[in-house]
Design a binder for these strands. Sequence first.
RNA 1: UGGGGUAUCGCCAAGCGGUAAGGCAACGGUUUUUGGUACCGUUAUUCGGGGGUUCGAAUCCCUCUACCCCAUCCA
Length: 747
Amino acid sequence: MNKSKDFLRRIVEEDLKTGKYQEIVTRFPPEPNGFPHIGHAKSISINFGIAQDYNGHCNLRMDDTNPTTEDTQYVEALKDAVEWLGFKWEGDVRYTSDYFDRLYSYAITLIKMGKAYVDSLSEEEIREYRGTVTQAGKRSSYANRSVEENLDLLERMKNGEFKEGEHILRAKIDMSSPNMKMRDPLLYRIRHAQHFRTGDKWAIYPMYDFAHCLSDYIEGVTHSICTLEFENNREIYDWVLDTLGLEPPRPYQHEFARLGINYTVMSKRKLLELVEKKVVTGWDDPRMPTIAGLRRRGYTPESILNFCESIGIAKANSMVDVAQLEFAIRDDLNTKVPRVMCVMHPLKVTIENYEGTEEIEASYYPHDVPKEGSRKLPFSKEIYIDRADFSEHPAKGYFRLTPDQSVRLKYAYIITCKEIIKDSEGNILEIKATYHPDSKSGEDSSGIKVKSAIQWVEASSAKKVEIRLYDRLFKNEAPEGIDDINPDSLSVITNALIEPAVITNKPDERFQFEREGYFYADPELYTDDTPVFNKIVALKDSWGKKKKAPNKAPEAKKVQIDGEVVPMTAEEQVLFDTYTKAYKLNSEVANTLARDAKLSSFYTEALAAYHSPVSIANIVANEVARELKTQEIDALKFSPAQIATLMRLVDEETISNKIAKGVFEQMLKSGDDPSKIVESQGLIQISDPAEILPIIDEVVANNPDNLAKFKAGNTKLLGFFVGQVLKATGGKANPKVVNTLVAEKLG
RNA sequence: UGGGGUAUCGCCAAGCGGUAAGGCAACGGUUUUUGGUACCGUUAUUCGGGGGUUCGAAUCCCUCUACCCCAUCCA
């Protein structure tokens, strides 16, 4: 039961283990400028979930730094969503605007450090000066203003002495940074707007990159978890916190992939468009992927949380299949919800040989749901069944009522069709049937076998209900916008019939309508006089699926075209030639070495200490190359000469290649001499079969299952046995010898 | 185009040099008074492509390709 942890939890565990933090603090930091959707639910589930798992806590913070877009109605929606999902935030709801004073004083500190300045370029100029992704930007001449002038200007900006756009506070970082975000990012802009909390107290508002990291810090957040598009912002996040030299511990940012679900849209802009153009009835339209929509549709908090858990957390952009969400709600409701009978498309059935009335006891739950509860179903000679449950000319495999096939009315009797009443156009109006008195559910002695039991309602007692059937909002898997809307995403059935107990007893708000799906009494529209139910999700329907022709077009495998490789320079070519000709390196290794100045110089030095061109080339082009990717030669703890020594040990077969890699790992950290490591840890390899054989016997004896599999032809398992033997010897056994020995033993 | 990311089954996703987890979907079957549920089984000789290192590579190295993000005084 070793459930694998996601990468965030792994980071958290590591940080706890190393003592980086004593307690984990996360936060869910939405901007209150729209309704939360299921993507927010993922973020909520991650942030609150991690805090919960590691006995920390999670704050709810409104990132309210842009007064022109934000509003208190959204903070209510956000709070509501978190609570509905069942989480409790630590203390009060936080607001970035609570920190405006402190943020302002941090800005002053930055100015005093010479790390921030007031720029007075126009918006267009700022854009121009920023350069492009391929060209460096240039710094504004205002960057030379004195500390005093900057301080004065900022103060006056704050006091509202300037118009919007006249001045702006920027960090002084690097106008030629390859990361566009680092080209003197904007810290504060002038905004003469009413803030929904601070009113007109402020004329300047901090930007995200300045406010977010500091708000995290102020709250003592340890893990600042956000989505992938903020990866480029991480550098500023660190810059602000480091430059200010704040007292540790400080938070670190980690990014995960935002949630995408097919057949819907998730961006605030597109969602807003749906609402504004009245494609949907509002933010809580049951077809919307908003929390409010899902909730109104009938989704439970548990189902959404389960869904979030099931999709995992990773860094690959992905598009989750709606089927996975649908599974989550079915799975949740299956064990919770009463089963009742509702006839969507009523077809009258008159049971000619039945007289009088009776009440039939029926359990709300099937045998496999361990819940108690039942109701009485009225029964008489006039009932309704669903039109789909009768077929005059049935397709093959049809289990329901036909002129030749009897069917059971669930909980009640078996009926047989006697006559079909049609109108002049041939539409079926009514079925005349007979019932089998000795076939009553639970006391059936008729001996009649039927293929299915269908739902029904008694005519005089049934209640008329409105049913709203929802389908996916968009017809495309990856919709662009309103053009892709599914015109049939909503269909309303106004005269469905439901058994009376649902309305009069109200056993629940969510039901399974037998053989149809899960339904929810609409919290806005439902009244006892005009009941309205939303279809949450259909039951799985293997009959409906079977009827549809399978349409599968096999996809052609994509052909991959190789791009062109940059040619070598003259010097590189010379190196390459000596490597391949004089040293007899294979061209791939030679290529790697020749093209990288750091590697070739390292290689040359190592070679001077011990001339074994091929083996040294291999370790330099592989293992050493990995280290040199992230650091310079000078920063390395090991020397070329030590690498040479290491390879001498391998060449002389004192140690195996496998051990060499282990030794190398240690050299990385300690800088110790390889021969010293080998000696002190007794890593000299074991090549004597007499020593190895008993271990092989033991491993084979301990793994009878795998031995059987191997004998059955699973030759991959050879590697398994070799691995086990190596493990048993602490990696010291000579793998080549082990390989041949194991092969002999098993072969 | 410079930088930052990501590629494992139809869709998610584990895996971190030694037997390619799991879930959804799909497909068979058993049980069933829901064509539901539950249960059992099938579904990756292969990890974006190509090379290399290694006894052994999804995992390390090189290289190519595809996709996402960054040039809002949004977050």
